[in-house]
């Protein structure tokens, strides 16, 4: 269990453990999305290890923070984070994608309440976050809603509908985190639907935007402190976390083919070694 006072070194350890779990899960499952799972390891480490810090009673606490993994294909990383903070048994990680498992290929809240929302059809999570944040604000709820999106996911029109509404409503209790790993299924974002720079567009939609190195837990902690402060005003917050797809495994980094890919035994052994060494 993570303690309230947490150091940057602990968050880095947590991210390393998440990466190690991701490699293990996808190797055992024989399929999955390693690239986008590895790119958000620090984001999840900072969210669960520093911001949310879910205890065993987390799901029954009305004042709790919420996390929605809109980029649902990073489910192995989410399950790993939940295992690291004690909400999923470590042994259960070995059941990913198997028939009857709570760990579906993409998160299923009816099987595993700790994932908070079923996602996987890209583009849908931010709307859910807007609805939650609006309802929480209206009922005096203390919690915030954190939504993790992929940069490829920003292609989807529904995301911009949600950005519009979130901005108009001025939902200061809503924090979007874009895992900007610059690669989507078919290749580099730059060669498909290049919407960069994201910052000015999001600001034009009424959001307070901050950029961060998405692999620097210190920068992410500072960004989360900013998002939870009054400084950005009555606007929803967005942290654009610049990341590397497949981060931590040299032969996956920046390689689109590792968006969705199984690992051979040799690749698995090399990946584990690299992740543990880093």
């Amino acid at each position: 269990m993570i303690q309230r006072d947490v150091t940057i070194a602990q968050l880095d350890d947590l991210a390393r453990s998440i990466r190690r779990d991701v490699i293990e899960e996808i190797r055992t499952a024989g399929s999955g999305h390693p690239g986008g799972s590895l790119s958000c390891a620090e984001i999840l480490a900072v969210l669960y290890g520093y911001v949310v810090q879910p205890g065993p009673d987390w799901l029954s606490r009305p004042d709790r923070d919420h996390v929605i993994l809109s980029k649902g294909h990073a489910a192995p990383a989410l399950y790993a984070a939940l295992a690291e903070v004690g909400l999923v048994d470590r042994e259960e990680l070995g059941t990913l994608r198997q028939l009857g498992s709570r760990l579906q290929g993409h998160p299923d809240v009816t099987r595993l309440a700790a994932v908070e929302m079923s996602t996987g059809s890209l583009g849908q999570g931010l709307s859910v976050g807007v609805g939650m944040a609006w309802r929480l604000r209206a009922t005096g709820g203390a919690g915030r809603v954190f939504v993790i999106l992929g940069d490829g996911e920003l292609d989807s029109g529904q995301v911009w509908e949600a950005l519009s509404l979130g901005g108009v409503l001025g939902l200061e209790n809503l924090v979007a985190i874009v895992d900007a790993n610059e690669i989507q299924n078919d290749g580099p974002v730059a060669g498909i639907l290049d919407l960069r720079p994201y910052g000015p567009k999001l600001q034009a939609f009424g959001w307070a935007v901050r950029e961060a190195n998405g692999h620097d837990t210190g920068e992410l902690v500072a960004a989360m402190d900013w998002a939870r402060s009054g400084e950005p005003g009555a606007r929803p917050r967005c942290v654009i976390a610049h990341t590397v797809k497949g981060r931590g495994v040299s032969f996956m980094e920046g390689r689109p083919e590792w968006h969705s890919h199984a690992l051979t035994l040799e690749q698995y052994e090399r990946a584990v070694e690299e992740v543990e060494r880093r």
Partner: peptide, 20 residues
């Protein structure tokens, strides 16, 4: 929510998750 039915359905899901 304006002319944005997909967003409306997602917002509804969020409202339901938050107890509405």
């Amino acid at each position: 929510v304006g002319i944005a039915e997909q967003n409306m359905v997602g917002v509804a899901a969020g409202v339901a998750l938050a107890g509405g």
